[in-house]
Nucleic acid binder design. Structure first.
Lengths: 161, 161
DNA sequence: GGACGGCTACTCGGATATCGCTTGTCCGAGTAAATGCGG
DNA sequence: CCGCATTTACTCGGACAAGCGATATCCGAGTAGCCGTCC
């Protein structure tokens, strides 16, 4: 089980946009800031746009910016925008195949106990992700490295010159 | 992010072995019970054996059986045996690439706040999985469908004749 | 009748192909700013 | 000098390939039970 690296890209991109406020940032700038392939990063940002997390602007001085304040964007929002809303564990109901096929169907009214247990675990995971917003991450970083945000903002301004 | 379907196979196989007690069950039997490709299922069971969750016996009347009582096998044990112990989210430290490469390295002594948040979420997931054992699943099933276990056991005995 | 040796069939175990999804790249449509011209 | 049409360059957006891991399959090594034979 491996999460797409696009999630890490999207999270860092969102954090960068949070620091940037309402100023749009182009895909090329973000790609340069983290040394990533810009075309593929664009794909991830498009996914964020489709999910309504960021808004896009075309043309010169265009780019992406957060569609909502950082307090209203959870990590779960970003992860689901990239990875999709489906559970990692997908119950295929194999208990009903083979031997189970010869048993009365009424037996399977109750949900598979294994799937239920896995679902509980994933619910914990989602809850933890939903409890943290971009603003929380910002606060954490500001607390430990207060100049990280402004400096990145400055780098973006000078690199574009 | 998608979990290997081998996890579902392994969990159901372990539950079947739990019902079967110390009686070894061959890969072919389990595959027939759930209508799965036996050769590939064998690969998953080998992974369980390598992790020390099940023990294997060769030759006629051979097969796999649980290496420990069901109370001592957690869902996390099974999941990690199949999927590996690594986190789903892998921090690539992209914050140190691009713009970050020109910043003093001392800046990055603190762990990436994003990676830390993702790690917390996964810890919750693992904790939930570790809190449930095969015996718990057995109890749940026995409570809702008391004859499921014995009937499966009977099916295995008659199908082999 | 009992014991022993060989045989057979069944099991795991790992090496070997195939497939789908993540990853990566490309080019076109659209837009806003910049520019040059005319008044 | 000011306003406007044209040009230009920059942006997103989606369509088109490549690489890698999960999936699926096969065959060989080893073992326990069975059978026939011999004592």
């Amino acid at each position: 089980m491996r999460m797409s690296e696009g999630v890490e890209w999207a999270l860092h991109s969102c954090l960068l946009m949070a620091w940037q406020g309402d100023d749009p940032v182009s895909t090329a700038k973000i790609a340069a800031a983290f040394d990533l392939p810009s075309s593929y990063l664009n794909k991830q940002l498009q996914a964020l746009a489709k999910a309504g997390l960021v808004s896009s602007t075309s043309g010169p001085r265009g780019g992406f910016r957060l569609a909502r304040p950082p307090q209203q964007i959870t990590l779960l929002d970003v992860v689901e925008a990239i990875e999709g809303p489906e559970d990692a564990f997908r119950c295929q109901e194999i208990r009903q195949q083979g031997a189970g096929a010869s048993f009365p169907k009424a037996e399977f009214r109750e949900r598979c106990a294994i799937a239920a247990a896995m679902r509980r675990a994933e619910a914990q995971w989602r809850q933890s992700l939903a409890a943290q917003t971009l603003a929380d991450i910002q606060s954490t970083v500001d607390g430990k490295a207060p100049h990280a945000g402004p400096r990145m903002r400055n780098w973006l301004a000078t690199a574009g010159a």
